[in-house]
Amino acid sequence: MSHEVFEHTADLGVRVRAPDRAALYAESGQALFEILVDDLGAVRPATALEVAVAGDDAAYLLHDWLGELLYLFTARNLLLCAFDVRLAHSGLTGTVRGEVLDRTRHRLAHEVKAITYHGLEVRQDPGGWSAEFVVDI
């Protein structure tokens, strides 16, 4: 599994690769929080939460999953560092782990306003799955 940030003039683009679709969503969550926090290694997996997202379209499902994770940060101040995703009949369920933001230990890097639909893509490649998304900064 891997992810990288790609060039976008105003915002940040993310490219993710994983062996299967569940891992692709998990890795995308990791990528999102690496944009939000300077050192994700400083975030402890102290609490666990279940996140369920419904939907059949693989790309919209990625959008909504990341949107839920972003909501947990913006509304609940939760920084997440571990993501375990299981695909369901229509949608996914994720177990996410992290802790509440502590400004003495955590340094925030970017304000992600939203997960955009621009260039949003999930596809199956010969070697596994890949995704691209752009976040609004």
Partner: peptide, 9 residues
Amino acid sequence: IHWGYGFCI
């Protein structure tokens, strides 16, 4: 003008 999402900026 520069690259935005959907619309250009």
